[in-house]
Amino acid sequence: MHPLDSMHYAKPAQAGGSARVSEAVARVIRARSGQAEAPEVKPRDPAPSRAAYKMNRLWLTPSFRFAMRRIVPVAAVLAVVGVWAANEDNRSYVSDQYVMMKSELQNRPEFMVKLMAVDGASEDLAADIREVAPVDFPISSFDLDLPAMLEQIESLDAVASAGVRVRAGGILQIDINERVPAVVWRGPQGLEMLDADGHRVASLSARMDRPDLPLIAGEGAERAVDEALGLLESASPLMNRVRGIVRVGERRWDIVLDDAQRIMLPEENPFAALAQVIAFDQAQDLLERDVRAVDMRNPNRPTLRISEAARDEFRRIKGL
């Protein structure tokens, strides 16, 4: 090796050795002078602590993030509200404020009802409706129990259906579909008007109060009003003499004429039997004679019942 090279490499070694010597000398001098040696500063460890690592791992869990962002704030608010509401004075204050605000809102002029209008009903029925559904005006629309009022109105016999609403202008509107009386029924309770379905409409004090309605009677007549109306319509040629129609044994009908005459119809196919009687009358004035009853209960064998005077006259003529 070249001598210069060895000298070159020797210099750093000598420099390092002299530095260590100088440092050792400095420590000896400081020790002799009573100065404490400065503590050695350790470099900061960039790795997280155990708690921070667990917290970071926990935060990566979706359920934990949801709980911390949504559930925990809500729970905290609810806890505060619960503590505040635990005080009775606070609850009373909230209740009083709610009642006062509700009353002020409901009693505003735009919510007040001042009048009642009843459409589609006769005067008597309208009076009955006002009686069963009394209202002290003015009243707030929030205080009206419309379903209960509707139930009370529809409980009236003369009401087929009804509608109740509050319309603009503070008017309680009641629309009525009134039952139309079709017959007068002489039943156990006296005279009553029935509609075409046999539903009771109203009571009647006297027959002459409704002479325009046909009279039906007999047990079970109210359950066969439609058939009775059909027979009366078929008896239109005799309508000026018809006084009523009677249900017999809940099976068949008797048509009652003036002069106490009767047309006794069969249980089955009474319309054909009635048509046969009308044809006899139109051909031979059957019902103008001294006949008490035309018995058609057996259509194949019609029978006439005549009065006592007619029988006596018949016997006299037969004897001659």
Rank of each mutant, 00 (worst) to 15 (best):
S203A: 10
D212I: 08
E123A: 14
R69W: 12
V159I: 09
H8C: 07
R69L: 14
D157N: 12
R70S: 03
L265F: 05
P214F: 15
A76L: 15
G220Y: 10
L144V: 03
A117Q: 13
D212K: 06
P109K: 02
L156W: 02
W253E: 04
M101N: 11
D290R: 07
E222V: 10
I306W: 02
S141L: 07
I29S: 05
P302L: 11
A272E: 15
S140K: 00
V80L: 14
K114Q: 13
F137E: 03
L115R: 09
G163V: 01
D281E: 09
N240C: 04
S141I: 03
A158W: 01
L265P: 00
E308H: 06
A275N: 11
R70A: 04
H199G: 02
S18N: 11
R70T: 07
V277T: 05
G187R: 05
M100F: 12
G16I: 13
A310R: 10
S205T: 10
M101H: 12
E268C: 07
R262N: 12
L60N: 09
A228F: 01
L204K: 05
Q35C: 03
D197C: 05
A217C: 05
N269M: 14
E313G: 06
P188M: 14
A117T: 14
L156P: 01
W185V: 01
A13Y: 12
S49C: 05
V72C: 03
L115C: 08
V99L: 15
D175F: 05
E222T: 11
F111A: 10
V184T: 13
A52P: 04
F314T: 11
R91S: 02
P46C: 08
D157G: 02
G170K: 01
D209V: 04
M68Y: 09
P48N: 10
R57N: 10
R27P: 00
L194N: 00
L144K: 00
I153M: 03
L232G: 01
P134D: 03
L191S: 03
L105Q: 12
R167N: 08
M239T: 07
D195T: 02
V166E: 10
Q261R: 14
R179G: 04
D119L: 12
D312K: 09
N300K: 14
A86T: 02
M68Q: 09
N107R: 04
S307Q: 04
A15C: 08
L229I: 11
D45M: 06
E250F: 01
E227V: 12
P266K: 09
R316S: 15
E219C: 10
I263Q: 02
R57A: 15
R210G: 00
P12S: 13
P39R: 09
E178H: 05
I317R: 11
P134Y: 02
S92N: 12
N177F: 13
